[in-house]
């Protein structure tokens, strides 16, 4: 009974103190405040090469991170469609929030095909020849909400896929229940970093799942490919979680990537790949 009496007073004291603190501490902060000036990134795109006949549109997108992990943010940070038949085009992206944008990319879309990350014509500040360099970050701040002169060179040859790689993918093992996507990608050289990994020459991430084998056809630019690889993505995972679960080998089980060359207008149909589904975790 005496314990109840003391405890009751402690509870009362604590509650009254807490109530007074709560009222006192929520006095001045207004929470979200207005941000003046509509933030934007502007610049000029210079096109190189001829646009492929199946070109649907070309836009510029701004990504908060690189490689991009937030597809939604990409969809909301786009310029209007560019006039890609002119030698160059000015653009403006009204970005949804202030902050740093790790990549400004020129994105190409084929008619009746989804956009995938191999469809990038150019990245602001990035170089793919004469040594790899990552894209430059653009900072959009309250003091400078509009960033000008973010110019990019866009090379249509990256998506001029006039050749075809094909073959049979044979799946070994059991399909994981959480399989979300299966894809196949062709790289001119085996990627050694994220920038290279996210810039395949050709990519298809709509392969069927839950099958024992599948005959694929992958449209690519003509040239030589040192690494043709099958990719797996688990349900709910981000694009960073793609797993390489099989590649085109010099001989089955050799573990050595095989090179394949395809000419413009040709199809190489024997790029067969055996996939170990046990690696899909």
């Amino acid at each position: 009974m005496m314990m109840d009496f003391h405890a009751q007073h402690i509870v009362r004291l604590a509650l009254v103190s807490l109530a007074a603190m709560a009222v006192a501490t929520c006095s001045v902060d207004q929470g979200i405040e207005p941000q003046v000036g509509v933030p934007a990134i502007r610049g000029t795109i210079t096109f190189e090469g001829d646009p492929p006949a199946n070109t649907h549109w070309v836009v510029v997108v701004a990504s908060r991170d690189f490689p991009p992990s937030d597809v939604v943010q990409l969809a909301l940070s786009q310029s209007a469609r560019l006039n890609f038949n002119a030698g160059s085009a000015d653009y403006e992206i009204k970005v949804p929030s202030l902050g740093s944008y790790a990549a400004i990319a020129v994105v190409w879309k084929a008619i009746d095909e989804p956009v995938i990350w191999s469809d990038v014509l150019g990245l602001y500040g990035a170089s793919f020849t004469g040594g790899i360099s990552f894209p430059d970050t653009v900072h959009v701040t309250a003091d400078a909400p509009v960033v000008e002169d973010v110019d990019v060179t866009a090379d249509f040859s990256a998506v001029d896929r006039g050749a075809v790689l094909g073959g049979r993918i044979t799946y070994e093992g059991n399909w994981p229940d959480n399989t979300e996507l299966m894809g196949i990608a062709a790289y001119r050289t085996r990627p050694e970093n994220l920038l290279e990994f996210f810039r395949p020459a050709a990519l298809n991430i709509s392969l069927p799942t839950q099958v024992d084998e599948f005959d694929y056809r992958l449209a690519t630019p003509p040239g030589t490919y040192e690494y043709t690889v099958v990719l797996w993505l688990g349900r709910g995972a981000s694009v960073f979680d793609f797993k390489e679960i099989g590649f085109y080998e010099t001989s089955p089980g050799s573990g050595e990537p095989a090179e394949v060359t395809v000419a413009l207008g040709d199809t190489v149909a024997d790029v067969d790949i055996t996939v170990d589904l046990g690696l899909a975790k």
Partner: peptide, 22 residues
């Protein structure tokens, strides 16, 4: 079960479908 952005289909439009996630 959560509504998730469908990576394969999102381009200029955000495509969402319900999935068993983690």
């Amino acid at each position: 079960v959560e509504p998730l952005v469908d990576l394969a289909q999102t381009a200029s439009r955000i495509v969402v479908r319900f999935q068993n996630v983690n």
